[in-house]
Design a protein around this nucleic acid. Structure first.
Lengths: 243, 243
DNA sequence: TGACATATATTCGAATCGAACATAAGTAAA
DNA sequence: TTTACTTATGTTCGATTCGAATATATGTCA
């Protein structure tokens, strides 16, 4: 029991012990041209210079984790408000060769058009297609596809991307997260395209329509899309509250 | 852009900044007498002396998060191996009045009989029934019921318990976590009791049996339960691999 | 041997989903 | 003005799943 007591006292005064750094990394996802995509930052410095990393930063001592995620969304990704959700915490000892860093990963979902300004403002950013080579919810790593094949990723950010895709696949058909990937008004076809991109499989159109309308998440606007050379679809809006 | 550069440099040398402490807290869950239960530790010291807390401890500088969870499972909860899964990271600034502590919560699942030795070895431990007053997957806080009503909980541990229950409810019928709450061999009725306790609703017996057998998770042993004064049920075993 | 309690199996109707098909509503070209 | 064309929207039908009810099986115990 003396060992237990010693441990207890040690734990009671953690200031005597070296503390890890805590970072937040952001998986900023969207759907571009029918495929999932994520925002990456080119690393200029050691370690992993030249590789691509998730936007991230260290959590400040007086800043909540969620606040750090939103700050990095603005500072590193040059993005305004977005749907943000905590994903998982990565804590392998050697995941950063410089020092012990525990990373709390978040993922954020945004409509495709929200990336244009950020990409123009910061040339170190890129928006890459995410290639998922596992079916359903098998899980595993994914590839960030550049112009000439998969981009080399820094740290364990490939694992983080893979987990983000897995979480998204798992949530999209029983939670309203898909709407965060679309503009304010959208057609049912656009919503289905988003679901198909995330799930990686084609979906049955009438069944998808029925399911979505039955969930009560959608509100018909009465407006129709413009610019199509065929019958225009009705525009819907996400109904925030089930009331 | 100078502000961005300054931020970049600051982030690059986090040793110059104060680091939070990182702790792991464990939600050790089981099903006792048809109700979910969790292991709590009575706090003797300030802060929250007299309140009940989850077993936890600080993550060491050379220890992975998952390893810390398993160490605390042994040292603080006096438990051997168990199903352990990361739950969520709690990072509000004032969640611990002493100092900034970020807690990575894990939950562990164990059969009811595995708690007896721990409760005898450490009188500061208690195994309390968890009262969930929200239906389905609404989510929210839960109560840890003592002999005379709900126990006062320390820190944000009520929120952690609530999230653990929510996660468990969400996973139990499409993932094989339920088996971690049962001994090696068990009857289908026992499995259904566990599911009903977690979900908080009665289930249809033939449908439950069909679903479980169709999933291919179960292996019939050919043995039967003993000690019943009626027809004994067949004992099943969890089939680890789908092959 | 038979009452009893529960395990196990079967059947049936409701709800859900995928697939095929039918109809509607726009544009664009004849 | 009409017709071809393309996609939106709606309907129907069969397969599957699930809950509920019912039937049968199998052990203990009086």
């Amino acid at each position: 029991m003396t060992q237990d007591e010693a441990l207890f006292l040690k734990d009671y005064d953690p200031s005597a012990y070296e503390r890890p750094s805590v970072a937040v990394d952001l998986v900023l996802m969207s759907v571009i041209d029918g495929a999932p995509a994520a925002l990456l930052v080119r690393r200029d410095e050691h370690p992993h210079a030249g590789r691509w990393a998730l936007p991230g930063g260290f959590v400040r001592i007086d800043e909540a984790l969620d606040d750090a995620a939103r700050r990095i969304l603005g500072q590193k990704a040059h993005m305004g408000d977005a749907y943000v959700e905590q994903l998982y915490s990565f804590g392998a000892v050697d995941r950063d060769p410089r020092m012990r860093v525990i990373s709390v990963a978040y993922f954020a979902l945004l409509p495709a058009d929200r990336f244009a300004a950020a990409l123009k403002a910061d040339r170190g950013l890129t928006l890459t297609r995410i290639a998922v080579d596992w079916p359903g919810e098998t899980g595993g790593p994914v590839a960030a596809m550049g112009e000439d094949g998969p981009l080399p990723l820094a740290f364990d950010h490939g694992d983080i991307l893979g987990l983000a895709m897995l979480r998204l696949r798992g949530k999209i058909d029983y939670s309203p997260v898909g709407f965060a990937l679309l503009p304010d008004r959208f057609t049912l076809r656009a919503l289905q395209d988003v679901h198909e991109a995330i799930l990686g499989v084609p979906l049955n159109k009438p069944a998808f329509r029925r399911r979505m309308l039955d969930k009560g998440w959608l509100e018909a606007t009465g407006e129709r899309e413009t610019g199509s050379s065929f019958r225009p679809a009705e525009l819907f809006r996400f109904k925030p509250r089930t009331a």
